[in-house]
């Protein structure tokens, strides 16, 4: 078996003196969709931020594409081809859609023809963004902002895309649309995706493998289908009765 694209070994992270991650082990292999589910405050977003270097892991190791990125500053981690669509979208509200996408390309190559081609690809994936390209980010609807957030992350041509709760606050129809786009990216372009979700049902159906996080620790792991059928997962995250 080849080495995983992203490997997280025994990572501990703190907010002040509070341990938010209590030694997390996790792997994402090339071409997979891996999802991390868990309740509010379990440490899912913290793990995602720790992979990106804010906060840094106090113990443990994060290896990406054979390179130890644990101690790198955030902007260099992104340059190593990990892109992130952060929690709460965090688009630039007063800048246009086009400018937002330009910012996404800031860490990518400087070749302008790349930018134009990437833009083309993004607009095929999210046609609505093409229509809105000269509109300010803050005037987009929630779903459009989420698409913009993902699109912006894609502009740096990442090998690994980190998505933090893309379904947060979206209507079911839009959730379907976003998840369809994620599947598309994975199947057609072979993009590796690490997805943090509270919407466990959707995420597990989409994912090749999944992890369940409770109080800063991984408690269960397995393929998406296995997890969907595990009674404790069903009870805790899918609202099903035994």
């Amino acid at each position: 078996m080849t080495a995983p694209l992203l490997a997280v070994h025994g990572v501990k992270a703190f907010y002040g003196s509070i341990m938010a991650l209590k030694g997390v082990d996790l792997e994402v292999r090339e071409g997979e969709i891996v999802t991390l589910i868990g309740a509010n405050g379990a440490g899912k977003s913290t793990l995602m931020m720790t992979i990106c270097g804010t906060p840094r892991a106090r113990e443990g190791q994060i290896v990406f594409a054979g390179r130890d990125i644990t101690r790198l500053p955030t902007h260099e981690i992104v340059r190593a081809k990990i892109a992130q669509a952060p929690e709460g979208r965090r688009i630039f509200p007063r800048m246009t859609v086009y400018e937002n996408l330009q910012m996404g390309a800031a860490a990518g190559s400087l070749d302008p023809s790349h930018f134009e081609r990437d833009l083309d690809r993004i607009f095929r994936l999210f046609p609505i963004l093409a229509e809105r390209r000269n509109q300010r980010g803050g005037t987009l609807s929630g779903g459009e902002q989420q698409m913009l957030s993902i699109a912006r992350a894609l502009m740096s041509r990442p090998r690994l895309l980190l998505l933090d709760e893309p379904s947060l606050g979206l209507a079911p129809r839009l959730v379907h649309q976003i998840f369809a786009a994620i599947r598309d990216l994975n199947k057609r372009e072979g993009l590796t995706i690490f997805l943090v979700e509270q919407n466990a049902f959707h995420a597990l159906r989409l994912a090749d493998r999944g992890y369940v996080m409770v109080n800063g620790e991984i408690t269960i792991s397995g393929t998406g289908r296995e997890l969907l059928e595990r009674p404790e997962v069903r009870a805790a995250y899918l609202g099903a009765r035994h």
Partner: peptide
């Protein structure tokens, strides 16, 4: 607009 987003996009 957003410092955290900047950092997550690889801006120093």
């Amino acid at each position: 607009e957003d410092e955290i987003a900047c950092r997550s996009l690889g801006i120093n």
